[in-house]
Design a protein around this nucleic acid. Sequence first.
DNA 1: GTGTATATCTCGGGG
DNA 2: CCCCGAGGTATACAC
Lengths: 219, 219
Amino acid sequence: MRLVVAECTVTYEGRLTARLERARRLLMVKADGCVAIHADGGAYKPLNWMNAPNTLVETDEGWRVSNQKGEVLLIEIHDVDSDTNVELGVDPGLQKDGVESHLQELLAEQPGALETGLQLIRREYPTDIGPVDLLCRDADGTTVAVEIKRRGEIDGVEQLTRYLEFLNAQPDLAPVRGVLAAQLIKPQAKVLAGTREIGCVELDYDRLRGLERPQQKLF
Amino acid sequence: MRLVVAECTVTYEGRLTARLERARRLLMVKADGCVAIHADGGAYKPLNWMNAPNTLVETDEGWRVSNQKGEVLLIEIHDVDSDTNVELGVDPGLQKDGVESHLQELLAEQPGALETGLQLIRREYPTDIGPVDLLCRDADGTTVAVEIKRRGEIDGVEQLTRYLEFLNAQPDLAPVRGVLAAQLIKPQAKVLAGTREIGCVELDYDRLRGLERPQQKLF
DNA sequence: GTGTATATCTCGGGG
DNA sequence: CCCCGAGGTATACAC
């Protein structure tokens, strides 16, 4: 990783046009080739950047970074304060837990946690307009489409509504009802779901994890 | 801005649980207090971070960064390679052009560019479910709700559909029809718009800018 | 590659 | 403060 502290003026032309007036900033070039221009604030996001893959051309005046899509980042460098290289090596990477995919795994194993008697037909059930998180059959034999979110909001209800329209157009599945499952469902989403006769289930993530490994509960 | 290169092991507990195994990384602390942990790849995004405002406590073992929401970033520091401070000062900031707000300004001034005879009633017309970009009246006196996007996709059609449902429930406005305006409208969005009788208009941004300042065209 | 959905999204505006 | 919508969103994943 190369770190340069310099007085610079920057222009970006691409998906929009943007300009940074002259100031002292940190330029970061990572091993993958991406370039980021950081100021001393504004959270972790750089003021301006160019992702890899790109081409960096260095001249006396500064850097010209461009890519195949026609985007150009011009960094005019007036004065260099420092220019250092840091060897970091390959990173083992971030391990995450608690995201939607894990919720989906847990519920695929335990559909009964959503509703007594619910049984899984298929996870990621494919349709022409995208995959349905879980397709299930309830105790009465009715098909149920389940949409899983970390937070249940209006767009989740919209998404499930599109799936239900599509699934109900298939005579072998119809009638299909919908259930929105999330750790937290916002009031607006509950209201919208109610007007469309979509069920709402709020989940306890830690409890689901416990259900997944019941033997752990015995000790 | 403080830049530390160090061998570290990191855990984050908050909106999710995440862990970074031991490796050499760049730790960045900006003047606003935000902390970012960068590897030598993965675009400009850090592997892990904590935004301001937060509290950083430094001990012999490493850093403990926490905030009021109960999120905690623990950085165990095994070995410090370098630890430097860089003075950058306040940044004049990024100036942008070409985004949706500018399209909205241009169309608010030139509703006729969308459709002959169209007149603006109000920009950012407020409803209980969010503001309608442009509310207009057409040559026949019918109310028209306009949703403006840089790129017209399915979610833009959904958003406009919600507004139309809401507006058509108001007797003083109904009937209201919808128009989706964007620089580029994707085929799927056009199809969905068609099934809901929503109009689609593709815009030429440069031409709109020209219309805004017609005197520039004379020279 | 396109299409679809997610994200510790981030960021800003308005009530 | 939350809610809502935009983003050069970026990123992953399926088709």
